[in-house]
Simulated scan of single mutants.
Amino acid sequence: MGQYHSYEDQELVQFMQNGDERVLAEIYNRYWDKMLAVAFNRLGNQEEAEECVQDVLYKFWKLRTDFSLTKVDLSNYLARAIRNQSFNILDRRYRERIKSENYAPVKDINLLSPERQLMIRELQEQIDNSINALPPQCQIIFKLSRQEGLSNKEIAEKLNLSENTVKSHIKKANRDIQGDIELLTTLISFYIFFKN
């Protein structure tokens, strides 16, 4: 059982379920280059791509007792895991950049009343909650489109997706977010109208 390179993926998974760490080394040797290429293609950063692959292999090993190959072969499973982990890294990168860009000293004068500040804060929280409730890929595409101002073509190239996929994600995000905030927006509008 020492020569794992001669085994099929299905057999490797069975050995791995028994806790044989040499199997993980074989999977690493067999798929590292492909996984790294997928991660680098999405992230454009060698260090983050390597971290992404290591994270996926670590999670894969932790799930070994419950993992089984049925409809998908191992290379496809790992490629999909890399894609999902890449989206998580892109999302984290985006949030860190927004946080650093949005940091600014508090202004001396604030022209909004406390009530209006509260309403704006509640509306923003509702919008943020609606965005965070979207599926990960949909979130990233929406943020790249609406908050970074990228075109559908630029997003498709950046995430290695088709433009139609990008359009459908933006359409879904707009529909979901609009449905979530419609009532709150109406209530705030009525309040502001009758208050003035």
Score class of each variant (00 low, 15 high):
residue 1 M to A: 14
residue 11 E to M: 06
residue 14 Q to C: 06
residue 15 F to L: 11
residue 22 R to S: 06
residue 25 A to V: 06
residue 26 E to P: 01
residue 27 I to P: 00
residue 28 Y to Q: 04
residue 29 N to D: 05
residue 35 M to F: 06
residue 43 L to D: 08
residue 45 N to H: 14
residue 46 Q to R: 14
residue 47 E to H: 09
residue 54 Q to T: 11
residue 58 Y to W: 11
residue 58 Y to T: 12
residue 58 Y to N: 05
residue 60 F to N: 00
residue 70 T to C: 05
residue 70 T to H: 12
residue 71 K to W: 06
residue 72 V to F: 00
residue 73 D to I: 01
residue 74 L to C: 04
residue 76 N to T: 06
residue 76 N to L: 03
residue 78 L to F: 02
residue 83 R to L: 04
residue 83 R to K: 11
residue 84 N to H: 13
residue 85 Q to C: 04
residue 85 Q to P: 04
residue 86 S to T: 06
residue 89 I to E: 01
residue 89 I to C: 01
residue 90 L to T: 05
residue 91 D to A: 10
residue 95 R to L: 11
residue 97 R to V: 09
residue 100 S to I: 12
residue 100 S to A: 12
residue 103 Y to K: 08
residue 104 A to P: 02
residue 107 K to Q: 13
residue 107 K to C: 05
residue 109 I to N: 07
residue 110 N to Y: 14
residue 113 S to C: 05
residue 114 P to D: 13
residue 119 M to P: 02
residue 119 M to W: 13
residue 121 R to Q: 15
residue 122 E to P: 03
residue 128 D to V: 06
residue 128 D to K: 11
residue 132 N to H: 13
residue 136 P to S: 12
residue 138 C to N: 12
residue 142 F to Y: 15
residue 142 F to I: 03
residue 143 K to I: 08
residue 146 R to I: 09
residue 148 E to C: 03
residue 149 G to A: 03
residue 150 L to I: 02
residue 151 S to M: 08
residue 152 N to S: 12
residue 153 K to N: 06
residue 153 K to Q: 11
residue 157 E to C: 06
residue 167 K to V: 14
residue 171 K to Q: 15
residue 179 G to N: 15
residue 179 G to V: 10
residue 180 D to F: 08
residue 181 I to K: 03
residue 181 I to W: 05
residue 188 I to A: 11
residue 188 I to F: 11
residue 189 S to H: 15
residue 189 S to N: 14
residue 195 K to M: 14
residue 195 K to T: 15
residue 196 N to S: 10
residue 196 N to V: 10
